[in-house]
């Protein structure tokens, strides 16, 4: 290609002129996106790292440099370890249950004897909660979990069982917010699993059936391994979403009892808004960003690998 243009100098000049103007137009095209991201994403991200080395209330002019002190103080702040544990319980618990249940539902929806219409109706039905907002889902489940008047306890009483204190029992409240998260987020995983299942060709299943494999064996030895990429994607996206979640669990449980269901995101908000400890809050934000970035990096590596395979 280069040799060809070199032999015709006039064409080369013309082409490079053209290329240059095209390049400049391209650079110009990047300007709006760059300006927006720079002011509202990059600068705040630089600042969150900077603030984490200072003691500052967010308003006054004197920012006191404290080095790594914020990171050392953080573990000694009230409830820090409980909040870490509750964040991990929430993230891993909801991820495991969401992926497991949505896989089962997707398998049930995909079975070959189901016609297309009923499959579409089911898919829409399961997807629906995903379009609601975290605030809406939070308020709805808080009402349902209410001890005296909530629907769940009313139903339990109606069946002759004793009511359960969903929102003020250690351990059980963690389960309560996980159930709400499962209800809220399952639809996305189901759709991704369904797409994965449809990409498995029927010939593979038929071949296995001819070789004498029963349905359980096909499921275990063919479908699950072929679905591994979808499972990975769902585990990663769901766990990232769980680490980011803020208002839905807060509206349901208020972080109670004690600090047992309070999440790190909620603590960052608390430090930033209510108690004006920008330094400590920023240090916590840096920690959370590191955790989420680490999970996302795994996701990117996995995605890259898959692109190589196909």
């Amino acid at each position: 290609m280069e040799k060809k243009t070199a032999s015709v100098p006039a064409a080369k000049i013309k082409k490079s002129d053209f290329e240059r103007s095209r390049y400049l137009t391209g650079v110009f095209f990047l300007v709006p996106a760059t300006v927006l991201s720079f002011i509202f994403v990059i600068i705040p991200l630089i600042n969150v790292i900077r603030y984490s080395f200072y003691e500052w209330n967010g308003i006054s002019d004197d920012m006191l440099w404290v080095g790594l002190q914020n990171f050392k103080t953080l573990p000694t702040t009230e409830g820090f370890w409980q909040m870490c544990i509750s964040t991990l319980i929430f993230a891993f618990g909801s991820t495991a249950l969401i992926v497991l249940f949505s896989f089962i539902v997707a398998m049930a929806l995909d079975s070959k004897n189901r016609n297309r219409v009923s499959r579409a109706v089911y898919r829409t039905a399961w997807f629906f909660p995903c379009i609601l907002s975290g605030s809406v889902v939070g308020i709805l489940w808080r009402i349902m979990y209410n001890y005296n008047n909530g629907m769940i306890n009313k139903t339990l009483k109606g069946m002759g069982l004793s009511p359960v204190n969903w929102l003020e029992t250690y351990g059980l409240t963690n389960v309560a917010i996980i159930i709400a998260a499962v209800w809220f987020q399952m639809g996305l995983c189901i759709v991704i699993f369904l797409a994965g299942l449809q990409s498995i060709s029927t010939e593979i299943n038929e071949a296995a059936a001819i070789d004498g494999a029963n349905e359980g064996q096909i499921r275990r030895h063919i479908i699950v391994p072929l679905m591994a990429p979808s499972i990975t994607i769902n585990v990663l996206t769901t766990s990232i979403a769980a680490f980011k979640m803020y208002e839905m669990p807060w509206l349901i449980s208020n972080g109670l009892p004690g600090y047992s269901t309070r999440l790190l995101t909620q603590r960052i908000h608390f430090f930033g808004i209510e108690s004006a400890k920008f330094g400590l809050g920023s240090a916590m934000a840096v920690l959370l960003i590191l955790v989420i970035t680490a999970i996302s990096l795994v996701q990117l590596v996995v995605l890259r690998k898959r692109e190589d395979i196909y």
Partner: peptide, 27 residues
């Protein structure tokens, strides 16, 4: 330039908003 830019964009996709909440308030 465009390749580098794309890499930067993809890596920004993973940053959670809550992480930048505090500096955004003062900004």
């Amino acid at each position: 330039l465009f390749n580098i830019y794309y890499g930067a964009v993809v890596s920004l996709m993973v940053i959670p908003f809550i992480g930048a909440l505090i500096p955004l308030i003062s900004l």
